[in-house]
Design a binder for these strands. Structure first.
Lengths: 146, 146
DNA sequence: GGATAAAGGTCAATATAGTTTACCTAACGA
DNA sequence: TCGTTAGGTAAACTATATTGACCTTTATCC
């Protein structure tokens, strides 16, 4: 059985992964900078948007940051009225996070940039290559750390 | 003409891109931490390894950081004997960077972690999906910023 | 009921990583 | 010689993240 994957392919993959991710985050970063927000704010908006009523602890786990690193940015978003909090009815220790309409608006603005970028590439490549890409991306954390 | 790419696909792509990249960088980060080095050192080692005799300015461009942000980490690597410098013979202002044997060793150690991770996924997926993945990654910076 | 644990919040100290601004030398080239 | 380029440094600043310690409120377990 021969190796179907060449070292040169793997080297190029490493490089393109770096360049692609850098480009992928650059768009939202620019919008965020105008509001003096950073990537953590973006991630909060994204994951709260995708998981309404998520608890602070759950958010902590998915973002893999310390409580203190989350708390500052989260408070900013709550203070600016982009994220709403409500007590859980079953367990009143738990704070449930949701996006406000304005928070949803910003989240969509940021997400749209990345969606457009990916859509431009996926549309040209076709549906099947997109599926391959997505399958591979899903597997990467499963064979590595985190 | 219908949209072949669904919004839900794009949303998942955004998310998997984030998780995959985080996992992808976590392995080398751990090794680097033991030596008190960071990602900039890694990028320097990687690009100098791939482009021997690269100039400081060229490295600056490819990494897209300020001269000051590069200078510290680069000096550390030179002081530790991981990167060698030599004057260009045609233009003695230009400093050419290459990896020392020990620098090459560390670069290979770091790169191997990421190569193994990608190889595990690519081998299972097959050569054609890998090509799709790589083609898409190559295109992402071409339709976006940077 | 009382101990313990869990969810969340906050402060302080620290580390790192990056920025901009500014100024320096050495070498090239017209 | 003069302007430009390659490279090096320093200061002040910003941000992002860490760990450790300590606090309240609420739930749960015995």
């Amino acid at each position: 059985m021969v190796d179907i994957i060449k070292n040169e392919d793997l080297m190029e993959a490493i490089e393109q992964f770096y360049f692609a991710y850098r480009s992928f985050t650059a768009g939202p970063d620019r919008v965020l900078q105008e509001r003096s927000l950073g990537r953590v704010h973006h991630r909060i908006l994204y994951f709260v948007g995708r998981n309404p009523h998520i608890s602070v602890n759950a958010l902590l786990s998915v973002l893999a940051v310390s409580k203190q690193a989350l708390n500052g940015p989260l408070r900013v978003l709550v203070d600016q009225g982009l994220v709403n909090t409500e007590m859980s009815t079953e367990d009143r220790r738990i704070k449930q996070l949701t996006l406000s309409p304005e928070g949803r608006k910003l989240e969509r603005q940021l997400t749209r940039i990345q969606m457009q970028q990916l859509d431009a590439v996926f549309s040209r490549a076709g549906r099947k290559p997109m599926q391959c890409w997505l399958d591979i991306m899903r597997e990467i954390p499963r064979v590595g750390p985190l």
